[in-house]
């Protein structure tokens, strides 16, 4: 009984914002039909028409951004975790690794992108690199903090067992770091999308960022809005993906216990 009740209340909770949004859209539509909206705010139906006219254009561009972001993100994650792991196992190179991360983070991507374009051309490779650079640092910091956050007594326990550094990393530091890693993941995943779109703005021929740029230049306001919605949706999807991974990897009860 109580279970179904909680399901119903959950449904109501998640339905409420949707209803609000629907009502809002309806209101905007009505005002727009009366001619009461400024130029830069198209009616929802105009945005819909921009999409429905050629849906494949939208999806192809969205997909281009998606895979570039995923690839960049995966590369960043792999590099950051290996770097953070090395920094923990070999204390001497921790500082250089961290400084490199800070440097990568400090470089203004909007300035770097044209340089990369000069080197690699305005290709997917450039966009993937930028996506990776945008999400590298948060993952590196999360990894470094997480691996080092292990309680000193847990490390002493491993020392008494004369565990190797790798065993200590595997049995104590990595599991201990999971909450940190997933916090970093949730920050880094949407950043990869942002990085890809930024890179695409410098004049790609594919991707949601490119589509946005072309729509802007041709004053196609409904299409601009369509791409904005697509970009937001993609960001949110990346975040939700990270959040789902977290749920799968860390059960709610162990999550509570690692604090």
């Amino acid at each position: 009984m109580s279970e179904t009740a909680s399901w119903q209340s959950r449904l109501a909770l998640s339905a409420a914002p949707l209803l609000v949004i629907a009502a809002l859209l309806l209101a905007i539509e009505i005002v727009a039909r009366g001619g009461g909206l400024p130029m830069f705010l198209p009616s929802p139906s105009a945005v819909w028409n921009a999409y429905a006219g050629r849906p494949s254009v939208f999806w192809e561009n969205l997909w281009a951004t998606t895979w570039k972001s995923m690839l960049g993100f995966a590369i960043a994650m792999g590099l950051a975790l290996v770097a953070a792991g090395l920094g923990v196992v070999a204390h001497r190179i921790r500082e250089p690794i961290y400084r490199t991360g800070v440097f990568v983070q400090a470089v203004p991507l909007i300035a770097l992108t044209p340089l990369l374009v000069v080197w690699f051309g305005n290709t997917a490779r450039t966009h993937v690199i930028i996506a990776a650079m945008s999400s590298y640092f948060p993952m590196l910091v999360a990894g470094m903090q997480g691996f080092r956050a292990a309680a000193p007594q847990r490390l002493e326990l491993m020392a008494v067992l004369s565990a190797s550094r790798w065993q200590t990393l595997l049995y104590v530091q990595i599991p201990n770091a999971l909450p940190y890693l997933f916090a970093g993941l949730k920050i880094a995943a949407p950043l990869a999308v942002l990085g890809t779109i930024t890179a695409e703005w410098t004049g790609a021929d594919r991707g949601i960022g490119a589509m946005m740029l072309y729509a802007l230049f041709s004053y196609n306001v409904p299409t601009v809005w369509l791409t904005v919605i697509g970009a937001c949706g993609l960001s949110v999807a990346f975040f939700l993906f990270a959040a789902c991974l977290e749920r799968l990897a860390i059960g709610p009860e162990t999550l509570g216990a690692t604090r």
């Binding site: 309680a151 002493e156 326990l157 008494v160 067992l161 599991p175 162990t254």
Partner: peptide
């Protein structure tokens, strides 16, 4: 070595905690 606090690894079951030295 037994520490003042139990120092069990919270993500391992009790059995897996006791087996930790065997793993190492």
């Amino acid at each position: 070595f037994v520490f003042q606090s139990a120092t069990l690894l919270p993500w391992r079951t009790i059995r897996r905690n006791v087996e930790l030295p065997l793993d190492v």
